[in-house]
Design a protein around this nucleic acid. Structure first.
Lengths: 256, 256
DNA sequence: AAACGCCACTTGTATGGACAAGTTAACCAA
DNA sequence: TTGGTTAACTTGTCCATACAAGTGGCGTTT
């Protein structure tokens, strides 16, 4: 019955396809929130795999916070915020589509200029080295939602002059051009809207904004992009589930 | 040589002691950031355990983002923000100590009163059911840092009348009294400081604050506490590392 | 009826083996 | 010297097994 899950030897690991199937069952309500899911032995029988593989699949759901556990206790489906894939979390465009809204953008500037001190420090450059900066307003269903100030190292930035910044996702474009974007460090705080941002977001100056500073790097740690994104908190915020079983990946830190 | 790690059969699982030892080596610089750590086979030999156990220990470090991997590629120590344990993340007092600062608090109110609509909805109560509310100013090294408005269900709240709220950690106190606090959902956004909060934090009204709304529950999902904590963003912010390998546990969501 | 103990079942922990897939370095050949 | 191939090594995946530890239900005993 579920042979298409197991037989599909397209290279994807088995435990990955299993965890995907489990996620799908939870999303569709086949395994409702709060219900206890089948025992590991049952799942082994259903998919014809070993227990280790089933446990590996369940483990990925566990540290997404979707499934609880406990010795002797059957695992339960937990009411958790649904996790987002890396690309959904990185790309405003993809995120907007995933929540059923239409993303928009208006680009005010694409410029090659010497790096400022903050961006240079984050990107590991000397202040004054050339970078590409983009200044955009992002909207959801036509309503202004976020201001984006992004600084790219030249390696990635030079590609942007061939890109219509008013049309689509920079993240997906750069990926398609072979740029390795696979790590991101986000720091979240609050700032008052400056006069420019306030005008674009159509709010009063000094309105509090939710700021996300993001340093995106390649797999081997070379910085590619530094961005300061200011969200209208009435439209967007950030959520995380924590449990006592796992160490927190989101951490509270003192400002230097 | 490392027999004390393996031989210590005090009930703690072996893979947990291993991952702790690994974390310790990274923290002390025995395994410097950016270096590649010993092969799994080497670690098996060193600790006398099987490969599965070593891999399980490494896996916990992996989804904290501390260690990278890859087939054929030796695992490397990644420059990541150090993770915080659940209790460090939950308890302002414990967090302050972990960063070498002295926590302070000044309690302005401990009151039993009917639940307001927001707290009641979050805690799953009828509006008007009795709850215990606490209003506190938290400080770091004597400097005001955060305003805390917490609402407890009576089951936990009744214990607080026996507690000196100006002295120590409510979280640790409740835990010691047997209250099960093991899950938390945090939502982060930005708000303008109201007149009361501004006066206590010694800032101008309408200064942007970093707001964390937190619903803490027991293991089986019963809500215990709902809190709205407003941080001075100049002193505190939140940070998270993301990679393309894992689905994001921190998610961006539209405000209802 | 309540308390207790036993037992089946479940998950957590740990071991061992096997193969696949990728990396690195040494080696040989042109 | 340069290029490509090979071989050793490493990690990812998957399997099978065994035992420990906790849960819940059943039945007996009190």
């Amino acid at each position: 019955m579920y042979d298409q899950v197991v037989e599909n030897r397209d290279g994807r690991p088995l435990h990955e396809r299993l965890s995907e199937e489990f996620r799908h069952r939870i999303a569709t309500g086949a395994w409702p929130e709060g219900s206890q899911l089948p025992s590991e032995a049952t799942l082994c029988g259903e998919f014809g795999t070993s227990r280790g593989t089933v446990r590996q699949a369940l483990a990925t759901l566990r540290n997404e916070g979707v499934v609880t556990g406990g010795r002797g206790r059957p695992p339960m489906v937990r009411a958790a915020v649904q996790s987002q894939s890396f690309s959904t979390f990185m790309s405003f465009t993809e995120w907007a589509h995933s929540i059923g809204k239409t993303p928009g953008q208006r680009t005010y500037e694409v410029a090659r200029r010497p790096a400022g001190p903050v961006a240079a420090a984050q990107l590991g450059l000397e202040a004054g080295e050339p970078v590409v900066e983009i200044y955009r307003l992002r909207s959801l269903d036509g309503v202004p939602a976020m201001i984006e100030r992004t600084t790219f190292v030249m390696e990635a930035g030079r590609l942007l002059f061939d890109f219509d910044a008013d049309n689509g996702s920079i993240f997906n474009y750069l990926r398609s051009r072979g740029v390795d974007l696979s790590r991101a460090r986000r720091t979240i705080d609050a700032v008052a809207a400056g006069p420019d941002d306030a005008r674009l977001l159509e709010v009063d100056p000094n309105t509090p904004l939710l700021r996300e500073r993001r340093l995106t790097s390649s797999a081997d740690g070379r910085p590619i992009e530094y961005s300061e994104d200011c969200y209208l908190p009435s439209l967007t915020n950030f959520t995380i589930d924590n449990t006592s079983e796992s160490r927190a990946s989101l951490v509270r830190i003192p400002t230097p």
